[in-house]
Computed example of a mutant assay.
Amino acid sequence: MNIRLHLFEFEDFPWFPHVVREGMLDFLRFMITKLGAYEAAVPLLQELLLKTQQRHITDLCSGAGGGIAGIQQALAQQMQEPVLITLTDLYPNISSYQYLQAKSNNTINFVASPVDATSVPESIKGVRTIFSSFHHLKPEQAQAVLQDAADKSAAIGIFEGASKSWLELLALWLAFPAVIFLVTPFIHPFKLSRLFFTYLIPIIPFGIVWDGTVSLLRIYTPKMLESMAAKVSAPHYRWRMGKAGSRIGKHVIYIIGYPDHQLKTN
């Protein structure tokens, strides 16, 4: 699927009810975690942390923090030392962040105030990451995210949990509605609002399928990311992009960038 259509997602609208947005994001966090969707991203992130001599990740556009706990655990296990992750978002999902912080014994924390990925405050440090959210940004906004990282000499890793295929789109339409109804009672933290807007007024299932469809159509291909990186004004910044993962449900499209001066020297 080499096309990109920037149709609307309900999740992007400021007027969209926050309680419904949280319900949709909670489902995505649950599924990403259970499927280990970002397994292929772990070696890439480990390499980035080692190259830049950092052990702190600042996750941008965190949503509900989908898959971040598994990524943190895998990195800490592979590197044999603690890795700290700070969650941020323009619309912080505080209840999910508190849940992840408690479950991770504070190795995952969060910024409670809104953080704009196109203009990250200087006070926020660490290797930047974005999981499953870069497609929400229009080309000029996506370009601004890369430029802001380069301007502030921040390493960045952006990952989309998909290979952008028609098969994924078909699975979303045929399988996801049933999956949503089956797994919703098992999603933590428990929320009555999630049950209400799934079973009584099914706005959450409709929103997930619609936004999921649009997300696949919006995802930037590696060639699009390459073109975007070429426009970043940063002569001493290195970029790498492509696809990783070889198993169904575990593909990622990624772009990684870091300044030359952060390279580890032996």
Rank of each mutant, 00 (worst) to 15 (best):
P114M: 13
H18K: 13
S132H: 07
G161C: 01
K152H: 15
I256A: 11
S132N: 15
Y97L: 12
L87Q: 12
Y97D: 12
A171W: 03
L44K: 01
T221P: 06
W239L: 04
F13H: 13
L172M: 08
W173T: 06
P114W: 11
F176L: 10
M224G: 02
L25D: 09
A178M: 09
Q98P: 07
L169I: 03
L192D: 06
H136Y: 07
P189F: 11
A112W: 05
F206A: 09
I203A: 00
A142E: 02
R247L: 14
L48T: 05
H56G: 04
P205I: 01
V145G: 11
Q101L: 06
L7P: 02
R238A: 07
A102Q: 15
T107I: 05
I130V: 15
L48P: 02
F197L: 01
K103P: 06
N105L: 14
H6E: 10
L192Q: 09
A76L: 04
D59F: 03
Q147A: 11
Q101V: 04
G23V: 09
Q147F: 06
L195Y: 09
S132E: 08
L182Y: 09
R4A: 12
S233R: 08
G63K: 00
I57V: 14
F159P: 04
V145H: 03
D211F: 01
I124H: 04
A155T: 04
H251C: 04
A64P: 07
R4Q: 15
F206I: 14
G66F: 00
E39G: 00
A41L: 04
Y254C: 08
T265V: 15
R238Q: 14
